[in-house]
Simulated scan of single mutants.
Amino acid sequence: MRSVVLAVIFAGQGSQEKGMGAEVFGYYPGLVQFASDTLGYDLVSLCTENPDGLLARTEYTQPALYVVNALRTFERVHREDRPADFYLGHSLGEYNALLAAGVFDFETGLRLVAKRGELMAAASDGGMTAVLNTPAEHLLKIFADDGVDGVDIAGFNTASQIVIAATPPVLAVAHACLKRREIRFVRLRVSAPFHSRYMEPARVRFAEFLKRFSFAEPAVPVVSNVTGRPYRPGQVTRMLTEQLVTPVRWTDSVRTLLDGDDGLEFTEIGGSALTHMVQKIRSGV
């Protein structure tokens, strides 16, 4: 029995950057070529050169991040790093968590993420914004008082940061409202209003697509974005479907683990933003 409990966490969309994956592509040429053939474009070129800014487009971002973080995970195993006791990922990152936990193989995950990115990119135009130091209930009341309609809460990142999603006209009105109230906000690097009502067309089509696949139960507990709790038996298809239209409960997910072990350690694959969030959640800010 190990004395230290480890949670491995996976970054999601927004963590992409030109040059990502360069440190691992050379170790897995077969998987990289397979991914390129499956996706229909040169994955290495996309990630290292970012031609025409394609990495900012959801249909390219999601499979690229999935592949890069999968290879980083394989390399972690190859180095015989300490095995994880829990996996969790932020939005797209949950697919890497499920892969690491043995729910599906690399090919299945790639096909799922490619379809997810395609559907999410096509479902609606819009965006997402992080709002700081304003509880969700208070924020929604402000919007209601100012006649701002059509904003969804799309994520609970920390006690001091929530995420909203909407179409461009609605977000413009919401931003104006926040400025009047002197509430700080930051536009996110995404191209659609994920985790909101606006993803309902994608949810319907993705649910149909998922019928083609069967999934194993996680060999290591994976915490769901939808519930903030570990997956229960038989939940994979439903959780992956609902994830598209429900908020990312990152705060609840992390607290679920912290409540069980105050000494829990976290290792992030794909960036450092989630690690900073964990630190804030741990300190209650």
Rank of each mutant, 00 (worst) to 15 (best):
M1F: 10
V8E: 02
G14S: 04
S15E: 00
K18V: 07
G19K: 03
E23M: 01
G26M: 05
L31F: 04
V32T: 05
Q33P: 01
A35F: 01
L39K: 00
L39M: 08
Y41S: 03
V44H: 00
S45C: 09
C47N: 00
C47H: 00
E49P: 01
L54H: 11
L54R: 15
Y66L: 02
V68I: 15
N69Q: 15
L71N: 03
T73I: 08
F74L: 15
H78F: 11
H90V: 05
E94L: 06
Y95K: 06
Y95L: 13
A100R: 03
A101Y: 08
F106P: 04
T108N: 09
L110K: 04
L112N: 02
V113P: 04
A114C: 11
E118D: 15
L119A: 08
L119R: 06
A121H: 15
A122D: 12
D125Q: 13
A136W: 02
E137S: 13
L139Q: 02
K141N: 11
A144S: 14
D145G: 03
D146V: 00
G155V: 02
T158A: 12
A159E: 12
S160T: 10
Q161F: 08
I164W: 03
A166H: 05
T167L: 14
P169D: 10
P169Q: 11
V170G: 03
V170A: 06
V173K: 14
I183R: 07
I183W: 07
R184S: 15
F185I: 07
V186M: 13
V186Q: 14
R187H: 12
S191C: 08
P193A: 11
S196Q: 11
E200P: 01
V204N: 05
K211W: 03
S214V: 11
F215Q: 09
F215C: 08
V222F: 04
V223I: 14
V226T: 10
T227A: 11
T227G: 06
R229S: 11
V236W: 01
T237P: 01
M239Y: 04
M239E: 13
L240G: 02
L240E: 03
T246C: 10
R249P: 03
T251S: 09
D252M: 08
S253R: 04
D259M: 12
E265C: 11
E265F: 05
G271V: 04
S272A: 13
S272Q: 12
T275H: 10
K280A: 15
V285F: 06
V285Q: 10
V285L: 07
